[in-house]
Amino acid sequence: MKTKAIKKRAPRPAKLWQLRLYVMDQTPRSVTALTNLKKVCERQLKGLYRITVIDLLKNPQLAKGDQILAVPTVVRKLPAPVRTIIGDLSDTEHLLVGLDLRADD
């Protein structure tokens, strides 16, 4: 999967970020979370990330895979290791810590 992603997009051999955002329905909180996540990614990882939004209302069985309890939850699938951040991501500081992006800052 990694190699495939690199082949497909790779402008440079840098790491491609795969992020999954689990939400429940199109609630204001879900929308806020997505907006916040996009904002941070655009600033820090422009062109190097991909966000998949999973609505648990439509696909409840997918909650099991990433052990989702809280929503919204962001799961950083790549780069390893997997990291999880819960909440509407309004706290940018904590989001950066959670995504391990502070070092790059």
Partner: peptide
């Protein structure tokens, strides 16, 4: 049987959340 596994201390919090995920899983 639904095994819920969360690594303790592995989760960062950023802003408010709820446990809809748990509800959804249980409800499902």
């Amino acid at each position: 049987v639904d095994y819920v596994h969360i690594e303790p201390g592995d989760t960062q919090q950023s802003g408010d959340y709820d446990l809809e995920g748990l509800f959804v899983r249980l409800g499902h």
